[in-house]
Amino acid sequence: MRTLSAFLAIGLVSVLAALPSRGQPPAPLLPPLPAGVAALEFSDFFVRPVGPRGLELTEKLLSLDGKRVRLLGYMVQQEEPRPGTFLLCERPLLIDEHEGGYADLPPAHVRVLVPTAADRVLPHTPRPLLLTGTLSVGNRREPDGSVSLVRLTLDAPAASSDTPTTTPQ
Protein backbone atom coordinates (compact mmCIF):
# COMPACT_ATOMS: atom_id res chain seq x y z
CA MET A 1 0.00 0.00 0.00
CA ARG A 2 1.23 3.45 -0.83
CA THR A 3 1.85 5.68 2.11
CA LEU A 4 -0.34 8.63 2.92
CA SER A 5 2.43 11.08 2.12
CA ALA A 6 2.37 9.90 -1.47
CA PHE A 7 -1.05 11.53 -1.81
CA LEU A 8 -0.75 14.53 0.42
CA ALA A 9 1.17 17.67 1.06
CA ILE A 10 1.98 16.83 4.63
CA GLY A 11 4.68 16.63 7.16
CA LEU A 12 4.92 13.50 9.26
CA VAL A 13 6.08 15.08 12.44
CA SER A 14 8.35 13.50 14.96
CA VAL A 15 7.64 14.48 18.49
CA LEU A 16 11.17 15.38 19.36
CA ALA A 17 10.57 17.11 22.63
CA ALA A 18 11.72 15.62 25.89
CA LEU A 19 9.35 13.34 27.76
CA PRO A 20 6.56 15.41 29.25
CA SER A 21 6.54 16.27 32.90
CA ARG A 22 3.54 14.90 34.83
CA GLY A 23 0.41 16.12 33.09
CA GLN A 24 2.10 18.30 30.52
CA PRO A 25 1.74 17.64 26.80
CA PRO A 26 4.85 17.24 24.68
CA ALA A 27 5.78 20.22 22.54
CA PRO A 28 6.52 19.06 19.00
CA LEU A 29 9.20 20.81 17.00
CA LEU A 30 7.56 22.15 13.86
CA PRO A 31 9.14 23.53 10.70
CA PRO A 32 8.79 27.26 10.03
CA LEU A 33 5.35 28.41 8.93
CA PRO A 34 5.21 28.95 5.14
CA ALA A 35 4.38 32.41 3.84
CA GLY A 36 0.67 33.12 3.57
CA VAL A 37 -0.27 30.31 5.90
CA ALA A 38 -1.73 30.89 9.38
CA ALA A 39 -1.05 28.61 12.30
CA LEU A 40 -4.15 26.96 13.76
CA GLU A 41 -4.49 24.67 16.78
CA PHE A 42 -7.45 22.65 17.97
CA SER A 43 -7.50 24.69 21.16
CA ASP A 44 -8.24 27.72 18.94
CA PHE A 45 -11.62 26.34 17.86
CA PHE A 46 -13.97 27.15 20.73
CA VAL A 47 -14.39 29.91 23.27
CA ARG A 48 -13.37 28.97 26.83
CA PRO A 49 -14.99 28.83 29.29
CA VAL A 50 -18.06 27.39 27.64
CA GLY A 51 -21.09 29.68 27.74
CA PRO A 52 -24.61 28.76 28.80
CA ARG A 53 -25.35 26.76 25.67
CA GLY A 54 -23.02 24.86 23.34
CA LEU A 55 -19.56 25.58 22.15
CA GLU A 56 -19.05 28.93 20.44
CA LEU A 57 -16.56 29.37 17.64
CA THR A 58 -13.68 31.71 18.36
CA GLU A 59 -13.06 34.87 16.42
CA LYS A 60 -9.77 33.37 15.28
CA LEU A 61 -11.41 30.32 13.74
CA LEU A 62 -14.08 32.40 12.04
CA SER A 63 -11.49 34.84 10.72
CA LEU A 64 -9.60 32.00 9.05
CA ASP A 65 -12.60 30.78 7.05
CA GLY A 66 -11.45 30.55 3.44
CA LYS A 67 -7.79 31.12 4.34
CA ARG A 68 -4.81 28.80 4.16
CA VAL A 69 -3.86 27.32 7.50
CA ARG A 70 -1.54 24.72 8.96
CA LEU A 71 -2.79 22.27 11.56
CA LEU A 72 -1.09 19.50 13.50
CA GLY A 73 -3.14 16.48 14.51
CA TYR A 74 -3.80 12.77 14.25
CA MET A 75 -5.74 10.94 11.61
CA VAL A 76 -8.75 9.32 13.23
CA GLN A 77 -8.80 5.59 12.70
CA GLN A 78 -12.24 4.88 11.27
CA GLU A 79 -14.00 1.54 10.94
CA GLU A 80 -15.68 2.81 7.79
CA PRO A 81 -13.34 5.27 6.07
CA ARG A 82 -14.67 7.13 3.02
CA PRO A 83 -12.80 7.88 -0.23
CA GLY A 84 -11.05 11.22 -0.45
CA THR A 85 -11.55 12.28 3.11
CA PHE A 86 -10.53 11.57 6.68
CA LEU A 87 -10.95 13.08 10.11
CA LEU A 88 -8.24 14.84 12.05
CA CYS A 89 -8.25 15.56 15.76
CA GLU A 90 -5.90 16.52 18.53
CA ARG A 91 -4.92 13.04 19.64
CA PRO A 92 -5.03 9.47 18.40
CA LEU A 93 -8.56 8.11 18.29
CA LEU A 94 -10.46 5.15 16.92
CA ILE A 95 -14.15 5.45 16.12
CA ASP A 96 -16.67 2.84 15.11
CA GLU A 97 -19.24 4.62 12.96
CA HIS A 98 -21.56 1.63 12.96
CA GLU A 99 -21.64 1.25 16.76
CA GLY A 100 -21.41 4.75 18.07
CA GLY A 101 -21.61 7.03 15.07
CA TYR A 102 -19.39 10.00 15.55
CA ALA A 103 -20.22 10.30 19.23
CA ASP A 104 -16.65 9.61 20.31
CA LEU A 105 -15.23 12.43 18.24
CA PRO A 106 -14.21 15.48 20.23
CA PRO A 107 -16.04 18.62 19.08
CA ALA A 108 -12.70 20.06 17.96
CA HIS A 109 -11.99 18.00 14.89
CA VAL A 110 -11.62 18.64 11.21
CA ARG A 111 -12.90 16.84 8.15
CA VAL A 112 -9.93 16.78 5.80
CA LEU A 113 -10.76 16.75 2.10
CA VAL A 114 -8.12 15.40 -0.27
CA PRO A 115 -8.85 16.40 -3.88
CA THR A 116 -5.85 14.47 -5.17
CA ALA A 117 -7.25 11.22 -3.80
CA ALA A 118 -10.98 11.78 -4.24
CA ASP A 119 -11.57 8.20 -5.35
CA ARG A 120 -9.34 6.47 -2.82
CA VAL A 121 -9.67 5.42 0.78
CA LEU A 122 -6.57 6.79 2.42
CA PRO A 123 -4.54 4.45 4.60
CA HIS A 124 -4.59 5.15 8.30
CA THR A 125 -1.36 6.73 9.46
CA PRO A 126 -0.74 6.52 13.20
CA ARG A 127 1.70 9.43 13.41
CA PRO A 128 1.20 13.16 13.91
CA LEU A 129 0.32 14.86 10.63
CA LEU A 130 1.15 18.45 9.79
CA LEU A 131 -1.40 19.51 7.19
CA THR A 132 -1.68 22.64 5.10
CA GLY A 133 -4.80 23.59 3.19
CA THR A 134 -7.75 25.90 2.91
CA LEU A 135 -10.08 26.15 5.86
CA SER A 136 -13.85 26.13 5.57
CA VAL A 137 -16.08 26.83 8.60
CA GLY A 138 -19.82 26.26 8.94
CA ASN A 139 -22.22 23.33 9.08
CA ARG A 140 -22.35 21.21 5.95
CA ARG A 141 -24.02 17.86 5.39
CA GLU A 142 -21.54 15.31 4.08
CA PRO A 143 -22.28 12.50 1.61
CA ASP A 144 -22.23 9.96 4.46
CA GLY A 145 -25.04 11.80 6.26
CA SER A 146 -22.88 13.36 8.95
CA VAL A 147 -22.62 17.10 9.48
CA SER A 148 -19.19 18.66 9.42
CA LEU A 149 -18.38 21.99 11.01
CA VAL A 150 -14.75 22.62 10.07
CA ARG A 151 -13.12 21.35 6.90
CA LEU A 152 -9.62 21.55 5.54
CA THR A 153 -9.15 21.11 1.80
CA LEU A 154 -5.57 20.03 1.38
CA ASP A 155 -3.20 21.73 -0.97
CA ALA A 156 -2.12 19.67 -3.92
CA PRO A 157 1.45 18.48 -3.31
CA ALA A 158 2.91 20.72 -6.02
CA ALA A 159 1.13 23.79 -4.71
CA SER A 160 2.38 23.38 -1.19
CA SER A 161 5.44 25.06 0.06
CA ASP A 162 5.20 23.12 3.28
CA THR A 163 7.21 20.08 2.40
CA PRO A 164 8.14 17.51 5.02
CA THR A 165 11.11 18.70 6.95
CA THR A 166 11.24 16.36 9.86
CA THR A 167 12.05 12.75 10.17
CA PRO A 168 9.16 10.31 9.92
CA GLN A 169 9.03 7.89 12.84
Binding site: E90, R91, L93
Partner: peptide
Protein backbone atom coordinates in the same frame (compact mmCIF):
# COMPACT_ATOMS: atom_id res chain seq x y z
CA UNK B 1 -9.69 10.43 25.64
CA UNK B 2 -10.07 13.83 24.09
CA UNK B 3 -7.96 16.48 25.74
CA UNK B 4 -4.40 16.90 24.66
CA UNK B 5 -1.95 16.09 27.42
CA UNK B 6 -4.38 13.97 29.42
CA UNK B 7 -3.66 10.26 29.85
CA UNK B 8 -6.03 8.30 27.69
Amino acid sequence: GRLQGYPK
